[in-house]
Computed example of a mutant assay.
Amino acid sequence: MVQKTTVTLIDDLDENITEDVQTVTFAHEGKTYEIDLGAENRQALDDALASYKAVARKAGRSTTSPSPRRTRVASDAGAIREWAAANGIEVNDRGRIPANIREQFDAAQK
């Protein structure tokens, strides 16, 4: 036996059942809202918000991936090791340099 489930979205404003109904998400005064709108009502919402969006700044979480974290380049490790040796601080010749030694190096550079 085969079952077929159909989900029908109905425009929340005019209760029309059309194939072009989509869920629209928007936020106002710290609250996020969702509404199902057909093409005509989506356009009306876009038109109503256009003048506000034109002068607004983007805020909150982005849907894009976050910026990559800044990392130190390999040459920093060499400079830190040289500085540590000159200052009598033991640090391995290879591997990760402990954060406290990096902090001491940064403080000494200022």
Rank of each mutant, 00 (worst) to 15 (best):
D20V: 00
R42A: 04
L9P: 06
R72G: 11
N41R: 14
N87H: 14
Y52R: 05
G78L: 04
V91L: 09
T5W: 00
E19I: 06
I10V: 12
A56Q: 05
G78F: 02
P98F: 13
S51A: 13
A86R: 12
G38Y: 07
R70E: 08
N16H: 06
L45V: 06
G95P: 08
K31D: 04
R70C: 03
Q109A: 04
I97Q: 09
L37D: 01
K58V: 13
G60F: 08
F26S: 07
S67Y: 00
K4V: 10
S67P: 09
R72M: 09
Q43S: 09
L37H: 02
A56D: 04
P66A: 10
A86N: 11
N87Q: 11
T64N: 10
D12N: 08
I17P: 00
V21Y: 01
A99M: 11
I101R: 10
I97P: 03
K110A: 11
D14F: 08
R69Y: 03
K58Q: 14
V91P: 02
T64D: 09
N87V: 09
G30A: 06
M1G: 08
N92A: 15
V21K: 01
P66C: 03
D14Y: 02
D46Q: 15
A107G: 01
D76W: 12
V24P: 01
Y33N: 01
D106F: 03
A107Q: 08
R72T: 10
L13D: 01
L9Y: 07
N100P: 03
L37I: 09
G78K: 12
R94F: 10
V21A: 01
E34Q: 15
D93I: 09
L37S: 00
E15Y: 07
A77P: 02
I10N: 00
N87G: 02
S67N: 09
A99N: 15
S51R: 10
L37F: 00
Q43N: 14
Y33F: 10
E15W: 07
K31E: 07
S51T: 13
N87W: 03
Q109I: 06
R61G: 08
D46F: 00
R81F: 00
L9V: 06
D106T: 07
S62E: 08
D47V: 07
E40F: 08
